[in-house]
C-alpha cells in the first residue's frame, strides 16, 4: 500500500509542484507582504503599516462602501430577475426554449472588453440608445458617466445583464430537478400555481438559491472589470471605485504591493464572513 501511495504521489508531483509554486505560495507570500512596507527599498517588515493605513484610509472606506452598496442592491435584484427568467424558461407555454436559454446565457461568454464597450455606447449621453429611449418617452437624458448615482446604477445594470442569465440557468436546473408529481399532488390539493411557487418551488430551491447568492457575493466582492472599463477606473471621482479596483490601483499603478495585499485579504475575509452569515441565516432548521 505504501508503495502504491508513493507511485501515486510521483504521478501527482508535477501538478503539486506547479500548484504550490503558482497558487499556494502567492497566497502565503501576499499575506506576508501585507505586513511589509513595500514602498521602500528594500522592503521592510512593518506589521502595522498597511493594516493601520487600511483602518484610516478614506479611499478604502469609499471602495468598501461602493462594493457593499452594489452587493446589497445588485445581488438580490439579479437573483430575483434570474428567478423570473428561470420560471419563464421552465414554463410549458414558452416556445423556442433553446433560443431563450442561449440568449440568457450568451452574456457570460461575451468578452468583457467587448460588452463594456457596447455598454459605454448604449449609455452614451448624446448617442446612446438608452438616452434616446428615455427621450422618446418624455424623460430627460441621464449623464450616466459624470454623476455618481447613475454611474453606480450603470455598473449594477451591467453586472446584472452579464450574470442574471447564468444564475437563471443554475436555478432552472434546480427547478427541473423538482419532481413533477409533487406539483401534480399540489394541483389535486387545489393549491394555486402562485402558492405552489411560494410554498413548494422556493423552499425546495433554497439550496440552489443559496449557492447562487454565495457565488454572486464572492463575484461582487471581487468586482473589477465593469468599474474599470465602463465607468473608466471607478469614475466619476472614485464614485464607482470598488475594492477590486482599489487593489489594482494600489498594487499595479502605485506599486504598493503591501497595501494591495492587505486590501486583498480584507476582501477575502469579508466575502467569507458575509457568506458564513448568509449560510447561517438560511440553514435548515430542524
Amino acid at each position: 500500500m505504501r508503495n502504491r501511495n508513493a507511485t501515486a504521489y510521483r504521478f501527482l508531483a508535477p501538478y503539486l509542484l506547479i500548484f504550490s509554486v503558482f497558487w499556494v505560495w502567492p497566497i502565503i507570500s501576499s499575506f506576508l507582504i501585507s505586513f511589509q512596507a513595500t514602498r521602500t527599498v528594500p522592503w521592510r517588515f512593518a506589521p502595522g503599516f498597511n493594516w493601520g493605513r487600511l483602518i484610516g484610509d478614506p479611499a478604502f472606506f469609499n471602495a468598501l462602501q461602493n462594493t457593499l452598496l452594489i452587493l446589497v442592491i445588485q445581488v438580490p435584484v439579479m437573483i430575483a430577475l434570474a428567478m423570473v427568467m428561470a420560471v419563464l424558461l421552465n414554463s410549458p407555454l414558452l416556445k423556442a426554449k433553446g433560443l431563450y436559454r442561449f440568449a440568457f446565457f450568451a452574456p457570460v461568454v461575451v468578452g468583457e472588453v467587448a460588452y463594456s464597450a457596447v455598454f459605454r455606447l448604449m449609455f452614451s449621453l448624446d448617442f446612446g440608445i438608452v438616452n434616446k429611449l428615455l427621450n422618446s418617452v418624455g424623460l430627460p437624458k441621464i449623464d450616466w458617466f459624470s454623476n455618481v448615482t447613475p454611474a453606480m446604477a450603470l455598473i449594477m445594470i451591467a453586472v446584472t445583464w452579464r450574470w442574471a442569465g447564468y444564475n437563471a440557468i443554475i436555478l432552472l436546473a434546480g427547478m427541473q430537478s423538482i419532481p413533477e408529481d409533487v406539483y401534480e399532488a399540489a394541483t389535486l390539493d387545489r393549491v394555486s400555481k402562485l402558492k405552489q411557487f411560494f410554498y413548494i418551488t422556493l423552499p425546495l430551491l433554497k439550496p440552489v438559491i443559496v449557492f447562487c447568492l454565495v457565488l454572486s457575493i464572492i463575484g461582487t466582492m471581487q468586482l473589477f472589470t465593469e468599474p474599470f472599463l465602463i465607468t473608466e477606473r471607478g469614475g466619476p471621482g472614485g464614485g464607482t471605485e470598488t475594492l477590486g479596483l482599489l487593489l489594482y490601483r494600489q498594487g499595479f499603478r502605485s506599486l504598493n504591493f503591501g497595501y494591495a495585499s492587505a486590501v486583498a485579504y480584507t476582501m477575502a475575509a469579508l466575502a467569507i464572513v458575509i457568506t458564513l452569515v448568509q449560510l447561517w441565516l438560511t440553514r435548515e432548521k430542524q
Binding site: 419532481p179 408529481d181 409533487v182 401534480e184 399532488a185 399540489a186 389535486l188 390539493d189 387545489r190 393549491v191 394555486s192 402558492k195 410554498y199 413548494i200 423552499p203 425546495l204 433554497k206
Partner: peptide, 28 residues
C-alpha cells in the same frame, strides 16, 4: 372529488408529515 396516491409518493420533502397531510386544506 378524487384523491391520488402516486408511485413516487410525491410527498413535499420540506414539510413534516403533519404539514404534508394538512397542506392542501390549509392552502384552500
Amino acid at each position: 372529488g378524487i384523491a391520488m396516491v402516486f408511485q413516487s409518493y410525491a410527498l413535499y420533502p420540506h414539510m413534516s408529515v403533519e404539514q404534508n397531510l394538512s397542506f392542501g386544506l390549509r392552502m384552500t
